[in-house]
């Protein structure tokens, strides 16, 4: 690999990142090469390691940082941050089986969480629809039996109110969970990638 190949790969890796972040990173590494001097080009490339890995780390850092800055991070951003951290783990130069294990654990947790959330949302939706149906039934029997109608409408409203309340709680909890998951994993990754060279 030579310098221009290094930068082609780095730029490709950062194509989804904002222009400002990408330019900052590219400038930094261009300067680094310039300061090291052309005679040290090969040594610098070896020292820097894989540009794909550098890009993955930068992307994961930015995603986690954005979660911190957002006062109300959306679930989608949380999930994508977790995903970017998983990709960074896969790109990290840790012993391969360990990386695959860590990434698999992350993917498994992510899938399990998404599954639980889908189940909860489906449950809440069922309650909500049930509420609407019971209210409709109550209105339908209004003419024949007023007490039954009132009872039925009451139960329906209870189901509606309960489902809305639980729904809000589920969304709030999901946001928090994905955000903290991305942060914790990114922190671990920081430790790992800094430690592994030193531990040899």
């Amino acid at each position: 690999m030579n310098r221009s190949e290094f930068f082609t790969k780095l730029e490709q890796g950062l194509s989804k990142v904002s222009k400002e972040e990408r330019d900052a990173a590219l400038n930094y590494y261009h300067e680094y090469f310039d300061d090291a001097g052309p005679e040290n080009e090969q040594r610098v490339i070896e020292e820097l390691g894989s540009p794909v890995q550098i890009a993955a780390r930068i992307k994961a850092d930015i995603a986690v940082k954005q979660l911190d800055e957002d006062t109300k991070p959306s679930m989608k951003k949380g999930i994508s941050a977790v995903w970017l951290v998983i990709l960074a783990i896969l790109a990290a130069p840790i012993a391969l089986p360990l990386a695959i294990g860590a990434a698999a654990l992350g993917i498994g947790l992510l899938a399990a969480l998404i599954g639980v959330i889908i189940a909860l949302v489906a449950g809440v939706a069922a309650f909500f629809i049930g509420g609407v149906v019971v209210i409709a039934a109550g209105i339908a029997v209004m003419a024949t039996s007023v007490p039954t109608a009132i009872f039925s409408i009451g139960v329906g409203l209870l189901a509606l109110g309960g489902s809305i309340l639980i729904g809000i709680l589920v969304v709030l909890a999901a946001r928090g969970i994905f955000g903290s998951m991305a942060k914790i994993m990114n922190k671990q990754l920081n430790k790992k990638s800094k430690g592994d060279d030193i531990n040899e």
């Binding site: 820097l48 390691g49 550098i54």
Partner: peptide
């Protein structure tokens, strides 16, 4: 023994 790729972030 830090590797350079970790310093930029």
């Amino acid at each position: 023994d830090i590797s350079e790729s970790t310093l930029y972030p």
